[in-house]
């Protein structure tokens, strides 16, 4: 069976639309799709009007459908009424969208792991090599964690403490692969000592609830807390390669 020209055009038009909508990733915004589809429509119209017989094959059925006549079936009549309703509504809706102002809150982007200041590079955890007291030191680190950090970073160290929901920069998840196993202990020591407010501007310090622990915890406890974070999660700190 031969597909009439108008059918072919419809198939091409619809498949191009579906391709733009579903095959392109990342997905295109609807305004861009609308632009492409308008362009495609113009191209198709140009293409079919070059030769008179194409033009007749394409526009003929459309013209007859719009004009209609007594012998039309009920379905065709209904289709015509629908077309007279849908096309104006479609354009009305687009005009509504174009005229209705929309407001989007400013997007904040941040660098999650900025470079630490030089005085915090190349430090070693003084308790890492103390094998004799290791278990004791980890336990002390655990006490520090459950008395201070648990409210935000959570009992399971996964960033879901009872207060986590209240902060819209969510507390770090230490169980997640790619966080503390990709960081050096000196980096953690910097972040814990100086807190959110000690971050550089590109990391939006004003949004971080991470306290500046040097004001609350002695240095010893901060190192032991780090020991605990690695021990509990089973990760190894990143070392100087």
């Amino acid at each position: 069976m031969r597909i009439p020209l108008i059918g072919k055009v419809a198939i091409i038009w619809v498949s191009l639309y579906l391709a733009l909508k579903f095959l392109v990733s990342p997905s295109l915004p609807s305004s861009v799709i609308f632009m492409y589809m308008s362009l495609i429509t113009v191209c198709i119209l140009l293409f079919v009007s070059v030769f008179p017989e194409d033009a007749e094959a394409f526009f003929g059925p459309i013209k007859r459908f719009i004009a209609g006549d007594q012998t039309d079936s009920a379905v065709r009549k209904l289709g015509r009424v629908a077309m007279f309703a849908i096309i104006p509504l479609f354009f009305g809706h687009r005009s509504y969208q174009a005229n209705m102002p929309s407001y989007e809150p400013p997007l904040e982007q941040r660098i999650v792991h900025p470079a630490p200041p030089t005085e915090f590079t190349g430090m070693y955890n003084p308790y890492r090599e103390d094998h004799e007291h290791f278990a004791e030191n980890v336990k002390r680190g655990g006490e520090v964690f459950y008395r201070n950090c648990v409210f935000c970073h959570g009992d399971k160290l996964d960033g879901t403490g009872i207060f986590a929901e209240g902060f819209n920069l969510r507390p770090a998840n230490f169980q997640e692969n790619g966080v503390i196993n990709m960081l050096q202990e000196s980096y953690l020591f910097w972040r814990i000592s100086k807190g959110g407010i000690g971050l550089p501007e590109e990391s939006t310090p004003w949004n971080s609830a991470m306290p500046r622990w040097e004001a609350i915890l002695p240095e010893e406890d901060r190192w032991k807390a780090i020991l605990f974070l690695y021990d509990y999660t089973g990760y190894k700190p990143r070392t100087w390669e």
Binding site: L89, S95, Y96, P101, Y103, L169
Partner: peptide, 26 residues
């Protein structure tokens, strides 16, 4: 934490005028 407040501007008159005009025109 910080959230945002937006004083919604009154909806411009165009929103009620233009779409019906366009639809009638078409």
């Amino acid at each position: 934490h910080w959230y945002f407040l937006l004083l919604e501007p009154p909806i411009p008159r165009d929103v009620y005028v233009k779409p019906p005009l366009v639809a009638f025109g078409v």
